[in-house]
Write a protein that binds this DNA or RNA. Structure first.
Length: 195
DNA sequence: AAGATGATTGCCT
DNA sequence: GGCAATCATCTTA
């Protein structure tokens, strides 16, 4: 897969692929695209900072940031110098499920990697993994068949640019996260159809 | 050095 | 559906 294309194009193709981190693999079932200067909802909207530097690298690395104490993982896209990334929001554990269960005690299997913060916790990904090149450091992306039913909708919990349907998910998966809207988005689209 | 913010989560009603 | 916990990062002084 060519990861130097823009995130919006890569995002739906990531569904069905397997993301493997140090022996634990998840089949990706939910993603969101984030671009750079043209995307007010993106971390890179206002230019490079110490945190988002990985978003400006060439496609093929990962960008890991922390929010509210949780780590979130993105697949960096686009050519070097252009900010573009796909947030991996949820997956189904297909490999190393015993270890994933230990990291997420009391959670049913389908929910082990449901939600971007939970997915990183199940995989053991932290901010220390930021900037890792896929295929190194025990982290790799394995191509897989696209799901039969791919749906698109607005991104979850973003406070700006909430009209863009840049979220993609496998309609047939029980591991897709809850799609909560930011209050500003709810005010603008009170009759937003659910997924 | 201190205050505001948020691509979240989980518990509450 | 509402909201509080929680903390790295960024802004302002």
């Amino acid at each position: 897969m060519d990861l130097t294309r823009r995130a919006l194009q890569v995002a739906p193709e990531l569904l069905g692929c397997v993301l493997r981190v140090r022996g634990i693999g998840v089949r990706i079932v939910e993603v969101e695209a984030y671009e750079g200067a043209d995307d007010p909802a993106s971390h890179a909207w206002q230019g490079p900072t110490a945190r988002n530097a990985s978003m400006f690298e060439a496609g093929g690395r990962i960008y890991v940031y922390t929010l509210h104490g949780h780590a979130c993982l993105n697949v960096v896209c686009g050519p070097e110098g252009v900010a573009s990334a796909v947030l991996v929001r949820a997956g189904e554990v297909v490999e190393g499920i015993e270890e994933a269960r230990e990291r997420r005690p009391g959670v049913r299997d389908a929910w082990l990697a449901r939600g971007p913060g939970n997915l990183c916790r199940a995989l053991g990904v932290t901010r220390a993994d930021d900037g890792t090149v896929l295929g190194s450091g025990g982290i790799e992306l394995v191509p897989g068949a696209a799901p039969a039913g791919v749906r698109a909708g607005v991104r979850v919990n973003v406070s700006r640019a909430f009209a863009r349907p840049w979220r993609f998910w496998d309609a047939g998966s029980a591991s897709v996260s809850a799609a909560k809207l930011h209050p500003a988005a709810r005010a603008a689209a009170p009759r937003q159809p659910s997924g």
